[in-house]
Amino acid sequence: MSAVPVSPPEKTSGVMAKIIGVPSAGPLLVLLAFGLIFAITNPRFLATHNLSIILQQTVIIGTLAIGQTLVILTAGIDLAVGAICVLGTIIAGKLVTSGYDPALSMAFSVLVCTAAGFAAGGLISGLRLPPFIVTLGILGILTAALRLISAGGAFPVRDEFLGWTGNTLRLGGFIVTYGVLLMFVLYALVWYLLNETKWGRHVYAIGNSPEAARLVGIPVRRHLLSVYLLAGFIYGIGAWLALGRIPNADPNALQTANLDSITAVVIGGTSLFGGRGGLIGTLIGALIVGVLRNGLTLAGIDPLWQDLVTGILVIVAVALDQLSRRKG
């Protein structure tokens, strides 16, 4: 006897209802509203050149926020994102400056970042330590290690391959960098993983209730490990993108990347309690932050307004999440 007998197909239910029910509709509205305000106040805002600048500015945090989203969906948090990414830039930079093949150097540094994610995941799933503490510890260790490796100072990384992600190409009047394209590819791939595969389902299940996940037979610890591993890999790609933006390996860089990426994730509607939200929201969240900063500058307004508005959005997003969870 088969467990799942086949049955006749059903008709698809209301497409419109689905669109309205999409969780990232709220952040999208906010993004469009800001876009509208800025477009009215300064026509330069909508110049294709300016829009492509905003995309380029979103590349690093936007990419790191992919990993952060995965981690937060499992009810974790990653404070070491920036440090792991900087580690990638410094290792790749050091290797290339010492004469190694650029592609191999970059691949190796992505591998090291993946290993850093693996280490975090191992401590979190293996020893059952809280993600906050583990990644805080890794942040501290890496900060010290980075200063040691780079002897305290930043150094320029002038290499064609490492800087490739900063090269531009024309897409119908729109200038984008390869880095921007790479970011979108990552978003598409991870979106697919999260929404269309078992792996992604189980990420949500673990974030919802690790005990329930265990009881239905999901190997929770192994799965958590794979999440941090993938996040580490994405941070490694982030390092490549960072070198494309700024051809410079600086141990002091990206110090606020952890909070910035968490901001993007939260504004995008993903719950800090895990199990709710998604990647499209994160991309929109990262864009909101970028649009705010760019738009305010174009309008000649003090950037402290950006922090203020971002702060309001974060609190509202978390409050909305709390409300919807309490209702449930």
């Binding site: 600048i53 500015q57 690093i60 700024i246 600086d250 002091n252 110090q255 760019n294 500058t297 174009l298």
Partner: peptide, 20 residues
């Protein structure tokens, strides 16, 4: 945002160029 925030400074310059 902090000593060493190269990305923040790069973005600021880009925005300023856009602002004219």
């Amino acid at each position: 945002k902090f000593d060493g925030d190269n990305e923040g400074q790069v973005a600021a310059i880009e925005d300023l160029i856009s602002a004219g």
